[in-house]
């Protein structure tokens, strides 16, 4: 039986993991490859690297990070952030990434999803959707620039459109819940879950193991992603999986 997946997310800036990760066991907690190994040993099912580099050099460094990770590890990982063209996708996938995730570039040019999907296969193309409730519109809308700017598209409609264009997976982040640690936005996730037939990764709001349980069962998300609670050791991948197992959720 296919398991639910637990995915730690690493924000990488100029080749270094940011968010002040504190792991005494690591030689270098800012080294994305060291951290990737740590999460692999903890039982992470997959990893997401989000490149938040501001410079061209930083993005070049990301290719090295991807190559080193693929050399050291035998679990799948996705690279997002700064993927704007088919050439960007090619570089990351050739360097050993299993999937690439596109966000704002796909909003500006939805054909990018189709191009990537036709060329590499749908399973390589993840579309990241940053959604936030809009009182004005009475639904979830797409937001860009870290949730500051509203993009004139409904989240659920965009999810459908992205899948029709060839997205093989959706990474849905609630900008309302992100950083709040009060649980995932299961209402949003349920709507998206019902609208598409590809795997959906829940993101934004994880505070404890129960939140993972809720989103993986109540909203039927296929995977759940978190960053800071894993980095700050508020919980661990192993602890979350043990809890899920105790509640009868099939995990690896």
């Amino acid at each position: 039986m296919l398991t639910k997946r637990i995915i730690p997310c690493l924000d990488v800036k100029e080749g270094r993991v940011v968010k002040g990760v504190q792991f005494v066991s690591l030689r270098d907690a800012g080294d994305p490859v060291e951290l990737a190994k740590f999460y692999n040993e903890q039982g992470a099912d997959e990893l997401v690297f989000l490149d938040i580099s501001a410079t061209h050099e930083g993005r070049e460094t990301m290719v090295d990070v991807v190559r080193e990770t693929a050399s050291a590890l035998s679990i799948p990982f996705t690279v997002g952030g700064g993927i704007r063209t088919l050439a960007d996708m090619t570089r990351m996938l050739r360097a050993g990434a299993d999937k690439v995730s596109v966000n704002s570039a796909a909003l500006q040019n939805p054909q990018l999803i189709k191009e990537g999907s036709d060329y590499f296969g749908a399973q390589c193309i993840v579309v990241a959707i940053d959604a936030k409730w809009s009182e004005e519109d009475g639904t979830w809308m797409i937001y860009t620039h870290g949730g500051r700017n509203k993009f004139p598209k409904e989240a659920v409609a965009w999810a459908k459109e992205a899948v029709a264009l060839g997205a093989g997976e959706l990474l849905v982040t609630s900008m309302d819940k992100d950083g709040e640690k009060t649980g995932f936005d299961n209402a949003l996730l349920k709507e998206i879950r019902a609208a598409v037939n590809v795997p959906v990764i829940a993101s934004g709001g994880a505070g404890n193991a129960e939140h993972f349980y809720e989103t993986l069962t109540e909203a039927d998300a296929d995977a759940a992603l978190a960053a800071s609670i894993f980095h700050y050791k508020e919980t661990s991948v192993a602890e979350v999986k043990n809890y899920l197992r105790s509640k009868g959720v099939v995990v690896r």
Partner: peptide
């Protein structure tokens, strides 16, 4: 009953 395509993830 609908199931997801692609078959993506860990299966035994």
């Amino acid at each position: 009953e609908a199931y997801r395509v692609p078959h993506m993830g860990w299966n035994n």
